[in-house]
Design a binder for these strands. Sequence first.
RNA 1: GUGGGUAUAGUUCAGUUGGAUAGAACGCCAGAUUGUGGCUCUGGAGGUCGUCGGUUCGAGCCCGAUUACCCACCCCA
Length: 452
Amino acid sequence: MALQAPKGTKDLLPEQARFWEYFKKTAYDIFGRYGYAPLETPIFEQTELFVRGIGEATDVVSKEMFQVISGENLKNLLAGQAIKAKSQFSLRPEGTAGVVRAVVQNDLVPQGGAPAKLMYAGQMFRAERPQMGRLRQFRQVGVECLGAEAPSVDAEAIIMLMRFYEAIGIARPSMRLLLNSMGCDACRPAYREEVRSFILDHAQDMCEECLHRAEINPLRAFDCKNPHCAEIMEDAPKITDFLCEECRTHYATVKSYLQLAGIEFIEDTRLVRGLDYYMRTVFEVQVTNGMGAQNAIGGGGRYDKLAEEVGGRPTPGLGFALGFERCVIALEAAGNAFPATDVPSIFLACVDDSVRPVAFELLQALRDAGMTAEMDHQQRSLKSQFKLADKMAARTVCILGPEEVAEGKVKVRNMGTHEEKLIDLEAAAKFLGNFGGMPYNGVMPGIEEALD
RNA sequence: GUGGGUAUAGUUCAGUUGGAUAGAACGCCAGAUUGUGGCUCUGGAGGUCGUCGGUUCGAGCCCGAUUACCCACCCCA
């Protein structure tokens, strides 16, 4: 059997790869207006960074990371030797930890300095069982703002996130923005305990999974898909009733900024994020139709303690990540095609094989002059060369036959108007440079005019 | 890690209770007066029916195993 791409990975075929480029560019354009600058971090990091940053008990860290190991260390490991912590690497399962590490390491938020606003785009890796909207290698675009605690940071991030979705063609009504506050070290522990005892009080009615959650991370019981559990959790204590004064004010301010900006949101007290570093503001954007089970196209929140966790000085942070592949699903489900990339091109058709060297030479000249040009490479008939030209949406076809070449000419055909003109081979590149950029149905200029 | 589903042409899929040369659409190739595309018409190429084994006079179809993919749980973007 032919070799295949690894499970859970996908090739981005040209159309999709182009869209990925467009997707990144659009994100960087929009986020750039909000002051975010690009940052590229390694695709693998010390495993310890993710363990400390994301949380040892999270699923992402405890069972979904791809380990990276050099051949030498693998040999040592198989021989029963330990690998130094500094040589234990994992492919990044998300972007935030690496960015925060880079901020700390490069001191991008010096004491008293302005916040560092950073954005990234790239592949993430999680060793999960693949399904719709869930791959082992997937692409995320994300932003991180380090060094500012104000709720305006949270609000503007959410605003630009929604702006981005609309810019790439996901209609506002098809999305819903969920918002919640998870409290902070001051108020969350008490709440957490409250939820834990609530679950234990209803132990006989809850699924086994939730009982397990009660001990590990009680808040995750809010995510349980079991309808019965969900029903019970409806009556569970709500985080919003437990927020401390600071968290309450922060949350209220974020909401008021969003309202000011006309961004609709749904307060969802059950929204809890699975990564340990989140606190205070958390949000998630979902698309409801055609997404399968994985309907979150983006999400994020505040993580004011993460920098310390990674060994830096206390630096508040906020960020989000959005999934490229899931956005593509949302776009396709809504019947939206990728933006067409209309590259006007020129095709050189050869009447017989004798003129191929001449065509080949002209082809390079056209490309050197900045045009997109192509010829047949399969000895096809003239007729099918024209079909090829059509397929690549060539506006112009140059016909080279023994007769033309003998006179040092080339015949230029406007595929829209069927107009044909004989011009000198030597002047062809210049002529086509002027003509090639014309609208499909445009009239060819006179030769003197074009060569002016 | 746990369930369920699918596997037939380049692609999307038909294929009746097991029966002779396995079909369609689209795509591809070639023609339809000379050296010229889109539309139309005609013809043609292309399949070890995922793989291995079993039942049977006979298997694309039934049984078992295996692999791959998909979907769901879980988790998350």
